[in-house]
Amino acid sequence: MNNNTLIKVMVPAIGLSVALVVAVVGYFVLQSWWSSPPAVLGFGDGPTQPIAFPHTTHVTDAGIDCQFCHRKVTTDEAATIPAVAQCLFCHDFGKIDGTKSTSDTAAAELAKLFDDSGEPQPVNWIRVHRVPDHVQFVHAPHIQNGVSCTTCHGDVASMQVVEQVRNLKMRDCVDCHRDNNAPTDCATCHY
């Protein structure tokens, strides 16, 4: 192979690979910008929570309604996350036979609720769904107008780890509002 052939092969090869990298990065950035990043390299995964709380077990297996824990979702802005005390309604080993909490993994996770002295501690969950800044999102009217939880949150009932399924960008919201004849006035959400 002489120098000429090297140049003939290498230059286009380098050029092509640079173009490819640019294209991939560009696709990635634009896709993330307009929608959500492609579900590769762990991007679509939900965050690792301080306590591995399996929604599957609670919703599908135990048949608990969403509103049992997310109590204010029908009336308020925030769906609200329950207090630790509410976990202990069912998981209080001293009082309830705890048939559903005796597995080793469950016991290990539940142990994280307590500090060394056995006092329950607050849990700092990592937010999974976060609308962009300057949006005043209110749960109540959505639920009251018949939007199901799964419309935005996906099939949480079968999620071991909760992840975001919709991009929740403004276009996503507005498209849905248009389709359902909901208000699209800017001041519906931005104030």
């Binding site: 509002h177 004849n181 909901a182 208000p183 699209t184 006035d185």
Partner: peptide, 8 residues
């Protein structure tokens, strides 16, 4: 007048 003017 936003396009999807509802009864609001």
């Amino acid at each position: 007048k936003p396009q999807s003017a509802t009864d609001r």
